[in-house]
């Protein structure tokens, strides 16, 4: 499959999702179920994308789990996004260097 085709599909789908409601729609969504579904989808997507993929993200399960644990703890205490993300990588790197 051509990489250009992949990128074109990604870009077009993503653009139309943003563009159509922004330019065309004027009404508000009324259905409570639909509203609830759209409210939960981002959280569900991010969770399904992260787990279990995060455990394979560093190529070494031990460093990945260490990074994940640190990220979960920092995120739980509302530490800013970027610090959580970089700390996870820092810990994974540190553990990787140690062992």
């Amino acid at each position: 499959m051509s990489i250009v085709a992949y990128i074109a599909v990604m870009a077009l789908v993503t653009y139309f999702i943003r563009m159509i409601p922004f330019t065309l729609f004027r009404k508000k969504i009324k259905s409570r179920f639909l509203k609830s579904l759209l409210y939960y989808v981002p959280y569900a997507v991010l969770s399904a994308m992260t787990i279990p993929a995060i455990f394979y993200s560093t190529g070494d399960m031990v460093t990945a789990i260490a990074g994940t644990v640190v990220a979960v703890i920092l995120a739980y205490f509302n530490v800013p996004l970027i610090i959580v993300a970089l700390s996870a990588a820092g810990v994974a790197l540190g553990i990787g260097l140690l062992f």
């Binding site: 939960y40 959280y43 991010l46 969770s47 994308m49 992260t50 993929a53 995060i54 993200s57 560093t58 190529g59 070494d60 460093t63 990945a64 990074g67 994940t68 990220a71 979960v72 920092l74 995120a75 739980y76 509302n78 530490v79 800013p80 996004l81 970027i82 959580v84 993300a85 970089l86 700390s87 996870a88 990588a89 820092g90 994974a92 790197l93 990787g96 260097l97």
Partner: peptide
């Protein structure tokens, strides 16, 4: 060893997005 560790950055950010609201909101 550095790029391997950086592989976790994006996922770390995803956790930072979903965990604080999950802590406040049981649903």
């Amino acid at each position: 060893i550095v790029t391997d560790a950086m592989g976790i950055v994006l996922y770390g950010m995803f956790l930072a997005i979903i965990i604080p609201p999950a802590r406040k909101n049981k649903s």
